[in-house]
Amino acid sequence: MDPTSVDIVALPVVEIELSRLSSVASPRTSGEDPEHIETLLSTEGELPPILVHRPTMRVVDGLHRLKVAQLRGDTKIVSRLVDGTESDAFVLAVEANIRHGLPLSLADRKRAAVHIIGTHPQWSDRRVASATGISAGTVADLRRRGGDSGTEARIGRDGRIRPADGSGRRRLAAELIRSDPGLSLRQVAKQVGISPETVRDVRGRLERGESPVPDGSIRLRAESHPLHRTEPGFARTVGRDRLAMLERLKADPALRLSETGRILLRMLTVHSIDGQEWERILHNVPPHLYSVVAEFAREHARVWTGFADSLDNWATSLAAE
Rank of each mutant, 00 (worst) to 15 (best):
A235Y: 03
P181R: 09
R169A: 13
R242M: 08
P121S: 05
R242P: 00
L176A: 03
V188H: 03
S224T: 15
D141Y: 08
R242K: 13
R221H: 13
P253V: 04
A129C: 05
G216A: 08
E231H: 13
E207Q: 15
L249S: 00
V213C: 06
V238A: 10
M245L: 15
P181W: 07
H225Y: 15
R162W: 15
I218L: 14
V202L: 06
S224D: 15
R154S: 13
R203I: 05
E197M: 08
H120V: 01
R144K: 14
A136Q: 09
L249M: 13
G150K: 08
T151A: 11
P212L: 03
L243F: 03
R256N: 11
S258N: 13
G150P: 10
I177Q: 05
R169C: 05
G204Q: 09
P121E: 01
E197V: 11
D180H: 11
I177K: 04
Q191K: 11
I155H: 03
R143V: 07
R178G: 00
S258C: 08
R256T: 09
F234D: 11
M245F: 14
H228C: 13
R256P: 03
R157D: 11
I161C: 05
T237K: 14
I218R: 13
S217P: 05
G146N: 10
R219K: 12
T237Y: 08
R154E: 13
R178E: 11
I116P: 00
G147F: 11
I194G: 00
A174S: 09
D180S: 14
G239V: 11
R157L: 13
P121I: 00
L206C: 02
T151V: 12
E231M: 11
L185V: 00
A189R: 00
L142T: 03
S179L: 10
L172Q: 13
G137M: 03
G261T: 05
D158H: 06
H228S: 15
E175D: 15
L249Q: 00
V139T: 07
A251V: 07
P253L: 06
P163N: 07
I161L: 14
T260M: 11
R200T: 06
R256F: 07
G118F: 03
S179H: 10
I161T: 15
S179F: 01
D201M: 07
E223A: 15
R178N: 08
G166M: 12
L142H: 04
P163S: 08
G150M: 09
G182P: 02
I177M: 06
D180P: 04
R143E: 07
S135I: 04
H225L: 05
I177S: 02
F234C: 08
G193E: 02
A136E: 10
T138H: 07
S258M: 09
G156A: 14
K250R: 15
E207P: 02
A140E: 10
T230M: 14
R229K: 14
S195H: 08
P212W: 01
I134E: 01
